[in-house]
Deep mutational scan, measured.
Amino acid sequence: MDEEYDVIVLGTGLTECILSGIMSVNGKKVLHMDRNPYYGGESSSITPLEELYKRFQLLEGPPESMGRGRDWNVDLIPKFLMANGQLVKMLLYTEVTRYLDFKVVEGSFVYKGGKIYKVPSTETEALASNLMGMFEKRRFRKFLVFVANFDENDPKTFEGVDPQTTSMRDVYRKFDLGQDVIDFTGHALALYRTDDYLDQPCLETVNRIKLYSESLARYGKSPYLYPLYGLGELPQGFARLSAIYGGTYMLNKPVDDIIMENGKVVGVKSEGEVARCKQLICDPSYIPDRVRKAGQVIRIICILSHPIKNTNDANSCQIIIPQNQVNRKSDIYVCMISYAHNVAAQGKYIAIASTTVETTDPEKEVEPALELLEPIDQKFVAISDLYEPIDDGCESQVFCSCSYDATTHFETTCNDIKDIYKRMAGTAFDFENMKRKQNDVFGEAEQ
C-alpha cells in the first residue's frame, strides 16, 4: 500500500465507483478503499435476508415463511433508472452494461384523492384515464405537443414562451391547466419533490418532461429500469471497470487518518501504512468535519406477500404521492420490486416508501404510502441524515459526494458526479471521457 497514487477513493457507493471508473479509464492511477467488507456503502443491496434483520437490530431473524435468505437482495436506497437518463448513458458509454441485466418497471402510478391511478404512457391511455376530465385532456394534450416540439435552440418552437424568464406557473396558465393536472405534471412527469420549481424559469421543467417522455418511448410500460439482483450491482459494475483499467481495490480496510500538508491532501493512513495521493474522493462518512447536515430522509422497507392493490398485479412499480394531495411540502414515493428481479424469495415483494422528513414524527409522514401497502409482513425503518460538503474541495483537493436524496431516480446523483468531475479535472464533464479506450493495455477482449 505504500505507494504513490493520482487519486484515492474512500467508500464504494455508486458515486465513488463511477468516479473511480472514469478516473481509471482516463489513465489515472487509482486506489479504492472501503472500511466495509462489502461494496456499495449507503447504496448497497443487503443479502442474505438475515443480514438485513441484523442491521435493523431485529434479533429474532426472519421467519421460515420468508423463504431462503440467499434469495434476497434488499436495497437500502430505493431508486430506478430513467431509461433515457444520465446513468444509463454512463453505463452505455463505459460498457458496464455487459455486467448487468435490466428489466423495465411495469408501471408508474400517481395518488389522487386517496386512490392510485396509472400515469398514462400512451395517448390512448391518456384519453381513457380517469385522472382528468374530457376538456382537461384536450388542454393537457396541447401542452404535451408543445413540450414535444420544444427545442431550446429554435425560438420558432417557443410559442411566445421565453425559456429563460417565463416561469412554469405562467406556462401552466397559458395552457389553462387545472391544479390536479399541474400536480401530476410537476411531480409524476417532471419528478420534482416540491413546488419550488413553479416560480423558476420553465426551461428545466420542460426538459425534465421531455426526458420522461423519451424514456417512456424506449420501452413503453414506464420510463424506469431496474437491474436484476438489486442496485448493489451498479457500484460493483463500475468497480470492475476501474479494476480492468488498473485500479487497486481494498475492502474491509480501516481508514485511520487523512493526511494533510499546508491545507492540501497528501495521503491516507491505514493500519500503520500511508498511501500518498494528489486528490481524494470520499463519501460524507469519511470526513464528518468537512460536511454539513442538509436534512433527513425516511425510508421504510416493507416486505409483502402480495402485489400492491390497484396496480394490475404489477411485479414492479412506482407510486408518487404528490405533496398537495397530503398537505406536505415534499412528495412521498413508493418503489416496489419483487422475486421477478431476483431480489426476493418466490411470491414475495419489496416495497420501499420514502420521503424528505418535515416533522418530528417521520413515520407518521409516510402513513399515506403504508396504507396502500397493507397487509405488511415486516417493516424496517431507516431515518438517514443527508450531508453535503461545506466547500468545493478545490483548495484541499478533498472531494466529497452528497448523500443520496429522496428522489426515486439517479439524475441528482449523476449531477453530483459531473460536478465533482468538473472540480477535479478543471474541465466540464463530457460523456466521451467515459469511453473505454480501444486496444489499450487494460481493455477487455470482446465477449
Rank of each mutant, 00 (worst) to 15 (best):
I332D: 00
E16G: 05
A369N: 14
D180G: 10
G295W: 13
K103E: 10
K112D: 04
Y421S: 13
A243S: 04
D257T: 15
G426Y: 12
Y212I: 09
A425D: 02
L92P: 06
T413D: 04
T412W: 07
G246W: 01
K293D: 07
F429C: 08
T412E: 15
K103C: 12
I182F: 11
A190E: 00
L373F: 06
E432D: 04
D257Y: 05
Y38H: 11
T427L: 14
G426I: 14
V145M: 10
L144M: 10
C402I: 13
D101C: 15
S167R: 08
S222W: 10
Q179R: 10
N130K: 13
G186R: 02
K112F: 02
Y111C: 11
A314V: 09
D101G: 11
K364Q: 13
K278M: 06
H187Y: 08
S330K: 13
K103S: 02
Y349W: 08
S167N: 11
Y117E: 03
G237A: 14
K422E: 12
G69D: 12
P227W: 15
H341R: 02
T360A: 10
Y197L: 15
G263S: 08
L198M: 00
R290Q: 15
N310K: 01
N84T: 08
M33Y: 09
T413K: 15
C277F: 02
C282V: 15
D6I: 04
F429S: 06
F102C: 12
G160P: 05
G232H: 15
G246A: 04
C202G: 04
L280Q: 04
S167P: 14
Y249S: 01
G393V: 07
A351I: 14
N342D: 10
F140V: 06
G11W: 01
P288Q: 01
K437E: 10
P201A: 11
L19I: 14
L81P: 05
R173C: 14
A445L: 01
G186I: 12
K253E: 06
P322N: 13
E363N: 04
A239V: 10
P227S: 05
M434F: 12
Y5T: 04
R55P: 13
K379I: 11
D75N: 10
G133F: 09
Q279G: 04
K137L: 03
P120T: 00
A243V: 03
M66R: 03
A294F: 14
I383G: 03
S384W: 12
I420N: 04
Y39Q: 14
S242W: 01
M82W: 12
G295C: 08
K329F: 12
E51G: 12
R35W: 05
R292E: 08
T15G: 03
R290F: 06
L216S: 03
V255E: 04
F146V: 03
S330R: 10
D71V: 10
D313H: 13
